[in-house]
Design a protein around this nucleic acid. Structure first.
Lengths: 158, 158
DNA sequence: CTAATACCCGAGTTTTATGCTCGGCTACTA
DNA sequence: TAGTAGCCGAGCATAAAACTCGGGTATTAG
């Protein structure tokens, strides 16, 4: 499990897509504008997401991307694995050139950690991300109704 | 929480040190030889570990490094935080320039993941690493007594 | 049928930072 | 007083990550 900004971007884009699920195809240009991610970079990412069967593409005018599965059936792990090649963090992964037994001094630790990370990312679906996001939006909207004073507080603490 | 080979090296070196705890100071040259980590690189790492109070240094001939605390009181998180600067994986960490509310589309996910990772690394102490290592060594030694056939199996699967 | 849209793709380029070296210094002990 | 071993900052090199570019190709609207 590798954790890079590539994976983060992919997740962000997929959540954006998921929030518009059911309203016809979404263009990368739109996602690019909303999430401030370079269009060509998005194209790269979505190429992989498509090849992994996470999204469908519709070409031509009025085209764009659509989720290939139900939002409850796509996990964060799916997305990250799709864009950030396999690679596991143990470095001596199954290779015999761990020096004698020594290299594996820490092997168990990293593979256990790996499992933890993967397990967590696998436990979160797009549906939850969308719901979480909607809840947040409601919250902020509520606060705006309640008091204008909030505007002064720019710092994001959540 | 950042996870790089720097952190891995630091952990490896600290486990090496912990396994010799109580036999006087250990030189970096020794650790370098055993763990195949460049001496100067180790010096850098141990500089940080010392400043964070994880090890004590003794200069001059017969000198070296010693654990500053009990092996049960040093966690993997301590070590990694010592060498891999603070930085948390959320990228928009407390900064207000998350675009509107959008940037935080994924903020919660990463900070939750961060906590998971940290929590795990904090739950593993040097003592456990040493014990795990000793157990493994016993295991392999046992197998060697039992059958020579093991020698043919170079692949490390554990 | 033509033009515009939007996906498709591989080959670059830029940037970053990790991992590591080098050189010289300081404290200590034998 | 010499040799050991830690101390430190500056600098380098390689690699990978992030991103760009310039071409395509399918599709649809007019």
């Amino acid at each position: 499990m590798r954790l890079t900004t590539k994976g983060r971007f992919a997740v962000t884009a997929m959540v954006d897509l998921a929030m518009r699920h059911g309203n016809g195809p979404v263009t990368l240009a739109d996602i690019s504008a909303r999430q401030k991610i370079s269009l060509s970079y998005l194209e790269q990412l979505f190429g992989k997401l498509r090849r992994r069967g996470l999204v469908n593409s519709i070409r031509g005018p009025g085209g764009g991307y659509r989720l290939a599965r139900n939002i409850g059936e796509v996990t964060m792990a799916d997305i990250i694995l799709a864009v950030d090649e396999p690679i596991d963090a143990t470095q001596c992964a199954g290779k015999k050139n761990c020096l004698e037994l020594r290299e594996c001094l820490t092997h168990d630790l990293w593979s256990a950690l790996n499992e933890r990370i993967f397990g967590y990312l696998e436990s979160v679906s797009l549906a939850e991300m969308v719901e979480n996001q909607r809840a947040k939006a409601r919250n902020i909207l509520g606060r705006q109704h309640a008091a204008v004073a909030v505007k002064r507080n720019n710092t994001v603490t959540a």
